[in-house]
Design a protein around this nucleic acid. Structure first.
Lengths: 149, 149
DNA sequence: CAAATTTATATCGTTCACGATGCAAAATTA
DNA sequence: TAATTTTGCATCGTGAACGATATAAATTTG
C-alpha cells in the first residue's frame, strides 16, 4: 500500500498541472479559428501591450527561457503573425514586431477573456471563488521564480 | 494600446500554467536522481497506490488521454520501471504492473512530498495559504472536466 | 447470429518545455 | 587595449500533450 503522502489526490502540483491543461483546453474553440495556439496567444498578448520587443523581454514576461521562445517565435514568423529584425543598438538582439495580420487578430481576440470567464463560470458554477486564487498564485509564482539559483 | 482584458497580467490561465511549470521545476532535484520525470512520477504514484491497472484506468486518474499515456508508459517500460502485459479477460487491455525497480523507487520517493512542501514554504513564506487553494482547484478541475461534450 | 457501435490501445504529426551546448556581440576587467 | 566574462539568441535532443486516425476486440442492436 502507498504511503499516505504519496497518493495522487494529495498532490498540489498535480492539480495545478491539470487545471492549467484543462483551462488551456477551454481556449481551443476560440483560438483554433484564429489559427494560433495558447502559447502563441500569450506572445500576442505581450506584443499587443507593447510592440517591438527583443526576445529576452518577451521571454521574461512569459517566464520562459529563450530556448522555448525562439522556436515559438520562429513558428509565428512562419505563419505571418510577427517579424523578427536585428537590433540596431545591440545587434545580438532580435526585435519582434507584429505584422498587419498579427495586429488584426487583436480585434477578433478582444472578446476571448470574457468568453473564457463566462465558460468557466458556467462550468464551475462559481467563478468568483476561482478568481480569488489569483493573489495566492502570484505569491506562489513569485516565490518559486526566485529560487532558481 | 491593448484592451485591458487582453493584458497578460489579467490572465488566470497564464498563472495556472506558470505555477504548474515552476512547481514541476521544484521536483527536478528530487526526481533526477531517480531517473524519472514528473509525469512518470505521477504514473508511479498511481501504481504504488494500486499495482496492475489497465492503461485506461491510469489515464483516467491522471486525467489524460491514452495517446499521451501510452507513449509515456512505453518509455517507462523501456527504462525498466513497469511491465505491460495483455489483459486476460479483455485482450484489448494492457495491464501495467510495477517491476522490482519500480517498486523499489517508492522507498526513495516517500520523502519527496514533505521536501516539496518544505521547499515551497521556504520560498513563498506561506505554504498554508497555498494549500488552501486545493478545494478551489478541485472545483475548477471538476467543472472543466465535465465540459468535454 | 450478423451488423453496427463502442471501447481499449496505439501510431503519427505538430507544438511545446527545457536541459545542454554553441556562438557572436556586448560589457567588464585587468 | 587585450583578455575575460556576460548576455542574447539559436540549435539539438528528449519527453510530453494532444488532435486525428487506425485497429482489433468487446458490446450492443437489429
Amino acid at each position: 500500500m502507498a504511503y499516505e503522502q504519496l497518493k495522487l489526490e494529495n498532490q498540489l502540483c498535480f492539480r495545478l498541472y491539470t487545471a492549467a491543461r484543462l483551462t488551456m483546453g477551454v481556449y481551443h474553440p476560440y483560438l483554433d479559428p484564429l489559427g494560433i495556439t495558447y502559447p502563441q496567444y500569450l506572445v500576442l498578448l505581450v506584443l499587443w501591450e507593447q510592440d517591438k520587443q527583443p526576445v529576452c523581454d518577451i521571454a521574461k514576461k512569459m517566464m520562459l527561457d529563450t530556448n522555448t521562445v525562439t522556436p515559438l517565435l520562429q513558428r509565428m514568423e512562419k505563419s505571418g503573425l510577427i517579424n523578427r529584425t536585428r537590433g540596431k543598438e545591440d545587434s545580438r538582439q532580435r526585435i519582434v514586431s507584429l505584422t498587419e495580420k498579427g495586429k488584426a487578430i487583436q480585434e477578433q481576440a478582444k472578446h476571448i477573456p470574457e468568453c473564457l470567464s463566462n465558460d468557466v463560470a458556467l462550468k464551475t458554477g462559481d467563478a468568483e471563488e476561482i478568481v480569488k486564487m489569483i493573489p495566492t498564485l502570484d505569491k506562489l509564482i513569485d516565490g518559486l521564480k526566485k529560487v532558481e539559483q
